[in-house]
């Protein structure tokens, strides 16, 4: 079987690259952590990989605003290649800081537009918070979310979050209507049974409690929670998981590896 190759794009301040690598490796992929300077030198190298990952961290210290400097850098130095990659339908994931980067360069929600039309702003709680949350996996009656990353997940899963700027907002109301209409909302913060959560289960004040979205096609996925921190049951606060061994985060990476292998 063909080995799936994953590119984890890193730069100064990236800090979730190793656990993201482990998560993909656990799903049978071959992973390379590549510094942006290396990729900029050889831009076409990006097309050698089946999956592109923007991991969590504090790129450039989150100075100015989270993910801002990196998203500018990518747009200016790799914009053409990244857009082409995105439109090719290959899986792309942005986790936490990676999600902030995707949104701020405009690869989400619409890679064709490739323009920032939404943002991840300061949490309503006013501070960085690290805790576990429940996430409702959005499934429309009749039509499941088109997101290729979240197949085979139960209605509600839990994952850890750790961010200070995770409030997903936009200027226009239509924006959210479109997201809903196009099944682009992937995860919402929820209570244990999928209902309305209370603080601290939701601390950032996201519109419609959005925790993760995808593009219309479903190959590009961005989320604030950290699936790579829950690939083993052991990582759960009460050591819960599936097959008495794995955490639900693993399914997310497995989906992409399987998709890329098809």
């Amino acid at each position: 079987m063909k080995k799936i190759k994953v590119l984890i794009l890193r730069t100064a301040g990236t800090n979730c690259d190793y656990e993201t690598q482990s998560a993909f490796e656990l799903c049978g992929a071959v992973v390379e952590r590549v510094h942006i300077n290396t990729l900029v030198e050889e831009k076409d190298k990006i097309f050698e990989y089946d999956i592109l990952t923007f991991p969590g961290g504090f790129t450039y210290g989150d100075d100015v605003a989270s993910g801002k400097i990196l998203s500018n850098e990518i747009k200016n130095k790799l914009g053409y290649e990244v857009k082409k990659y995105a439109l090719s339908g290959r899986p792309i994931i942005g986790i936490c800081n990676g999600f902030q980067v995707l949104v701020k360069m405009g690869l989400l929600p619409d890679p064709e537009l490739f323009k920032q039309i939404s943002t991840l702003s300061y949490n309503d709680s006013g501070r960085f918070e690290c805790c576990w949350v429940y996430l409702k996996t959005e499934k429309k009656i009749g039509s499941e979310s088109s997101c290729i990353w979240t197949k085979n997940l139960p209605d509600v899963i839990s994952l850890p979050v750790a961010h200070g700027e995770g409030k997903f907002i936009s200027e226009s109301k239509d924006f959210f209507e479109d997201l809903n209409k196009n099944n682009q909302i992937v995860f919402r913060y929820s209570s244990k049974d999928g209902g309305e959560p209370e603080y601290p289960l939701v601390s950032n004040g996201s519109t419609e409690r959005i925790a993760g979205i995808c593009n219309k096609k479903g190959n590009i996925f961005g989320l604030m929670p950290h699936p790579e921190r829950y690939v083993f049951a052991l990582q759960h606060p009460a050591k819960e998981g599936f097959n008495s061994k794995y955490g639900w985060g693993k399914v997310i990476f497995q989906n992409a590896v399987d998709f890329a292998g098809q």
Binding site: Y60, G61, D63, V64, I69, N72, E73
Partner: peptide, 15 residues
Amino acid sequence: DIVSESLIKAVKDLG
């Protein structure tokens, strides 16, 4: 002033 250090890098990225 670390923010200003990052800013100088980012300005270069802008071309």
